[in-house]
């Protein structure tokens, strides 16, 4: 998919319009009038602390929850109640904890093939297992790892399996909810490198929910900063990091623990 058009001109592949979500029994809105547009090839970071509404927004974009008011559109069309097969093929998701998101009783190959089976794509058995081998290789695992079970893998490898599963139907958009938060620092960097590589190589567009601006800055050219269900700042990640306009964004940046300045520059 080589689009000559500059990113700014592209129609959003996935968008939310005035999204509001009010949960029963809660006085405040989890999401309050949020607009969001995901353009092909422009990965978007959604940043904020707990209660900001970022995971609620992700669930609406994924179509597993419905807004109280407002609308989600996929390729310009309203996302209807029963998510279309095309949407489910094009938009995949990776969650925070690969321990709970992988079925422990299934082999890695069947886990990875699961979206192919449920979407009834990927051809016959042989074609599907070729696809499984292909995506396992793409995430840095070996095709023969497909015969093993999730518990035989480390946390970082399990997250690779979850990413392979998401990639199996060749989606255009990958939604990721805190995909590295449960991992150790060194493993975290490996998964970030993998995601970046996949974005570059496969032309994936990432929608990354994270509390960590550093991770977003590595993967997403655009960012939304959320607080209390609203977007407080949005723009090019480099601008938001260097010239934050909103007071909360500034506080968020200031709170990030830092190594001594000179040390960081030396590296």
């Amino acid at each position: 998919m080589s689009e000559p058009m500059p990113a700014e001109g592209r129609e959003p592949i996935l968008s939310g319009h005035q999204l509001t979500r009010q949960f029963a029994g809660r006085s405040h809105r989890a999401l309050d009038g949020v607009d969001v547009a995901v353009r092909p090839g422009v990965s978007l970071g959604i940043v904020g602390e707990s209660g900001a509404g970022k995971s609620t927004l992700l669930r609406l974009l994924l179509g597993v929850d419905r807004p109280t008011s407002g609308e989600v559109r996929f390729a310009g069309q309203p996302l209807d109640r029963a998510r279309s097969r095309e949407f489910r093929r094009q938009v995949q998701v990776v969650f925070q904890d690969p321990r709970s998101s992988l079925n422990p009783r299934m082999s890695v190959a069947s886990i990875v093939a699961e979206p192919l089976r449920s979407l009834r794509i990927g051809g016959d058995r042989a074609a599907r297992s070729a696809r499984v081998a292909e995506v396992l290789t793409a995430v840095g695992l070996r095709p023969e790892d497909g015969r093993r079970y999730p518990h035989e893998f480390s946390g970082g490898q399990r997250q690779r399996i979850a990413i392979a599963r998401a990639l199996a139907p060749a989606p255009r958009v990958l939604l990721a909810d805190e995909p590295v938060s449960a991992l150790d620092v060194s493993v975290r960097l490996q998964i970030i490198d993998l995601l970046r590589d996949l974005v570059d190589r496969l032309g994936l567009t990432l929608v990354l929910v994270s509390h960590d601006l550093a991770i977003v800055s590595q993967l997403c050219p655009e960012v939304l900063v959320m607080r209390h269900g609203r977007v407080v700042e949005r723009g090019a990640t480099a601008d938001v990091l260097t010239r934050p306009v909103d007071g909360y964004t500034r506080a968020l940046l200031a709170a990030i623990p830092q190594l001594p300045t000179d040390l960081v520059e030396e590296q």
Partner: peptide
């Protein structure tokens, strides 16, 4: 230290995010 410096550098308002 290298991993932490890399993550720290990317979160720093000066120059953060510009190497992508």
């Amino acid at each position: 230290v290298t991993s932490a410096a890399r993550v720290t550098r990317l979160a720093r308002p000066a120059g953060g995010g510009e190497d992508r």
